[in-house]
Design a protein around this nucleic acid. Structure first.
Lengths: 229, 229
DNA sequence: ATTCTGTACACGGTATACAATCTGATAAAC
DNA sequence: GTTTATCAGATTGTATACCGTGTACAGAAT
């Protein structure tokens, strides 16, 4: 018997570009509405148009960029309607995912939630860093990783980029919100440990709807700021 | 104020190819696992590899084709696990969509459901035609069209191709199922008219789970047939 | 006869060239 | 001065050439 000597295949260029752009959008290196020309002018990635094009096509299906035929590709720009609909949709996915996780593999889910919670706790005071947001993302991902339904996971993946982008773009300046947010996360874990589904749903609803309000305010503010100028 | 005079832009080649391939997969013109080379060998679409590639990339994100690096692109091949997970996921989406439709625009939803029901009724006896399946698809789409949440619509769109493909590929030979199916659709409309949410959920669950069982059987049969040979 | 290996071929990965079209600016006409 | 016509630049749309990799088949060695 031969020992397993698996090697990792080199990632394809489109995959690398996609990941890089995704992170750039999520971490606010690129701003909403920013143009992303196919030839990569300005973004110093040394790839030709073909892989770039493919990456942009994939990002479009994740809603992170908007491709306007014959005009160009731009980073998505969230509207108030987007924020509201996204929050409702996300709530639906998360409630289903967390209930499935509770039913099928509560131990590993709990472990993953604790991990994320610890990471968030460690960086709670670092203002302006994206570490807390990453922990937040990881916390919510733990429901999906353990829910056991690949389609549900996939549905979350296609919106998680937008959710994460909203978080980093719109919630940084109000870091006192982090306190409330952290408390809610802990409450979710507690309710999960008790196996109280309706309590989980209640807290999750409050949590996500509060986040929605925060983002909605931020969007209105930035819209107001624009008309002032 | 000017009247709105929107024109439809000519569809891009990738969009045409995507739609054509999508329909071909859904209508069983292509079989599961079939290879789809980028240069279109065999498929008489006269386009070059670039738009073909883009179409395949988009179809991959809808789960209709599988792209294996350096090997090729193939029509997806549903497994038992797929069918089960897809049914659960679909059920979740549909229950949410139909409840939203009931809350926000019951009249137009009802109208759309009646339309689809009439179309199904008209072709109920044509065995082997895809007309009934199309009506079925239209019926379920009416929840999403009227639910008012674009993300929910989008999530459904990304799985509707697979659902429709399962329908045409795996349910045709058992056309006596159509009778039961038709009755369930009518029952859904009745419950919707009464505004009875829990009744809707009950029927919808039974409806989708029965479809799941049908597909699961068909897959097991075709797997058994293969090992016999 | 079976297994291994070498080679030819086919296909996807990427880069690039050329065509089509949109945008914005500038100039001309009213 | 306002409107329209024209043109230049830029950017996407599409086709294709080249390269690397995977696969299949045939031939050789055991």
């Amino acid at each position: 018997m031969l020992p397993k000597l698996e090697i990792e295949h080199p990632k394809s260029l489109p995959a690398i570009v996609e990941e890089r752009l995704r992170n750039a959008i999520i971490n606010a290196e690129l701003s909403f509405g920013q143009a992303l020309p196919e030839d990569g002018t300005g973004l110093a990635l040394g790839v030709s148009r073909t892989p770039m094009r493919q990456a942009l096509t994939r990002l479009e299906s994740q809603g992170l960029v908007v491709i306007v035929p014959k005009k160009g590709t731009f980073v998505f720009k969230p509207t108030l309607k987007d924020v509201e609909q996204l929050a409702s949709f996300r709530l639906m996915l998360e409630i289903n995912a967390i209930e499935l996780s509770l039913a099928s593999s509560p131990e590993t889910t709990l472990r993953d939630m604790y991990h994320a919670l610890a990471a968030m706790s460690a960086v709670r005071d670092e203002k302006g860093s994206h570490a807390y947001a990453r922990g937040d993302t990881a916390f919510h991902e733990s429901f999906f990783i353990n829910c056991g339904n690949d389609y549900l996971i996939n549905a979350f993946k296609t919106v998680s980029g937008r959710i994460a982008a909203l978080r980093t773009h719109l919630s940084l300046p109000r870091s006192h919100e982090q306190l409330k947010s952290f408390g809610e996360h802990k409450a979710i874990v507690t309710a999960f440990e008790m196996g109280d589904k309706s309590e989980i749903a209640t807290i999750l609803t409050a949590h996500i709807m509060r986040a929605k309000t925060t983002y909605a305010l931020a969007i209105e503010e930035s819209a107001a700021a624009k008309t002032e100028i």
